[in-house]
């Protein structure tokens, strides 16, 4: 595979500055079904292109991918808009797919991409729901969702945790697989990245659910809606446990 093709793949398995393409697209698209489609399809296009290579990606690409992932993870800390937050996390997470492509049997790559994308899809749905209620999904503006919208908050918490690779979410096992394929330097990068994700997730949740509760006028998620989200999360975790990405 030529370096040019790798650069093309770098649009879909984001490498900075090509990563800007996805981020601009995602934040400009206001139609939420399109956003969901982008989250699901974008990395799969990159993987399909990458599958045409007979050899694993060269080391310089891995270093580049890790630097990109770290950059977006660091930037995640100050991101207060939920849509932007999802795009940054997606950029950082998909960068790790380069590392996972290193494995001798990288057949589960599509699954790994899915494990990273699915919680973000759910988060995008929740973000759309927040936008409908409040006109925007920003942290720090309508604090205290847990007081007025307990069901919504519970779903939001679990989804955010799944998105940042908290066990038993399948993305946790994908992260472990990435560690297994990394060199010592890349392992340290992965560790720093995971730490930044946790920090960013805590900041996001604190900015949304914690506080005295100024949003009591807004309706909470309906019980049926909460059940649907719960079922989706349980299914995600069950699938992750059944298909741990070649760890066992």
């Amino acid at each position: 595979m030529s370096n040019l093709t790798y650069l093309l793949v770098g649009f879909f398995l984001p490498l900075f500055p090509f990563s800007i393409g996805f981020n601009v697209l995602f934040t400009r698209v206001n139609h939420w079904p399109l956003r969901l489609a982008l989250l699901l399809v974008w990395p799969q296009i990159g993987l399909a292109l990458l599958a045409r290579a007979d050899v694993p990606p060269p080391h310089w690409i891995l270093t580049w991918a890790m630097a990109t992932a770290l950059l977006y993870s660091l930037r995640l800390l100050a991101m207060r808009e939920l849509g932007g937050w999802i795009a940054f996390l997606a950029t950082a997470a998909w960068g790790l797919l380069w590392l996972l492509a290193q494995a001798p049997a990288a057949g589960g790559l599509s699954l790994h991409a899915l494990w990273f994308s699915l919680p973000l899809v759910m988060l995008a749905l929740l973000g759309a729901s927040l936008e409908r209620r409040f006109g925007g999904a920003y942290t720090g503006i309508y604090q205290g969702l847990a007081q007025g919208m307990p069901r919504f908050s519970a779903i939001l918490v679990v989804t955010v945790l799944a998105a940042v690779a908290t066990p038993p979410a399948p993305s946790f096992f994908s992260m472990l697989s990435a560690f297994l394929n990394a060199t010592p330097m890349l392992m340290l990068g992965l560790a720093a990245l995971w730490l930044l994700w946790t920090w960013a997730a805590a900041r996001l949740l604190q900015g949304l659910i914690v506080g005295p509760g100024n949003c009591r006028s807004q309706a909470d998620l309906k019980p049926s809606g909460a059940w649907v989200y719960t079922a989706a999360l349980v299914a995600l975790i069950a699938l992750g446990a059944a298909l741990p990405g070649g760890l066992a």
Partner: peptide, 25 residues
């Protein structure tokens, strides 16, 4: 969930624990 300070200090615990999780990984 009304207490910002409870979460702020809870976060110290979370992040220290995560710092400790990573060497185990």
């Amino acid at each position: 969930t009304r207490s910002q300070s409870a979460y702020r200090y809870g976060f110290w615990t979370l992040i220290t624990y995560r710092i400790g999780d990573l060497p185990l990984v």
